[in-house]
Amino acid sequence: MTSVNAAFGELAAERRIASAPLSHVSIELGHLYMEDFEAGPERLREQFGRVAPWAAAVRSGWQRRIPGGRARVSTCFLIDDYFSRFSTPAELVPMVLEAAAEHDLSIDYLARESSCAEADGVELARLVEGRLVDDPPPGTTGSRPPVKETGWLCNGSRSPRPGSVQAMGPAQRWAPPVQNAKRGHSIFVDVELWDENGGRRTWSCPFLAAVWQLLRLGMLRTEGELPLRPVPAGASWPARWDDLPPIVQLNDQAAPFSAYTTLSVLSPRFLPVELAVRTVLSQVAVDAEVLEQVRRRSDGEGVALEDEIVDRVTYVFG
């Protein structure tokens, strides 16, 4: 015997990243706020009525795209239980399902908005915050840390602060904010990510919506694992929102919750929110390994995906 091939491995030294089951598209059929609820079931029926044709169009679009028409399409519905608490699951969920059914819409997954902040002990919002990589203005060499306004995120350079930093030195003059990737003129966006009151942090609606999109795209991991998995619906609906799992699977035949792409059908009043969401999403650095997993899978299926995460998120405003 002259030589032996030795192999030695240490699990703690390796990075293992779980892969998420993926549909082709995740369609968000609606997002329910207290004001919608207060407007009564009629408002819900109207909303589903507007959504139904778009959902059908997207479904058939993907069926045409996938050989054999075997497109995996899942639908979801988000209820706000973060910014205000209203009604109970027992009262609200059946009403939502009924209104959807009237328009032949089936809701596969039901999610609570507060799970985007924290669910099952995992602070999803913190995970995403930790992955923000600020869009650098030209001239950013890395010699100083990125200029940050705590709790805010923008797509360019803010106006300089007036005042001077040296006794008898020249004062700085006002200058406009500038978008980094401007084409000719700037569209400068500055998004509030959170605020704090008495030590309690409240995440902003656009930030949680960005988390929601990343969750639906299967892009989040905690310690290499999927942070949330859908839980099948129980026999009855609980009386408290906290007793409802973060994501409930209503249809046991449903395609996977997360998907290569997402579609949200929204009222135009959400346009500013979604601009903010896109500003956030375009500054989230998804784990390279996760990106690679998704790319390998989609390539294997012959599905061409946009390189940039933010371009995998689509909308219908109407």
Partner: peptide, 11 residues
């Protein structure tokens, strides 16, 4: 250089 005319957090 001149005396500092203010101290901000960054400094």
């Amino acid at each position: 250089g001149g005396e500092l005319s203010a101290v901000d957090d960054e400094m």
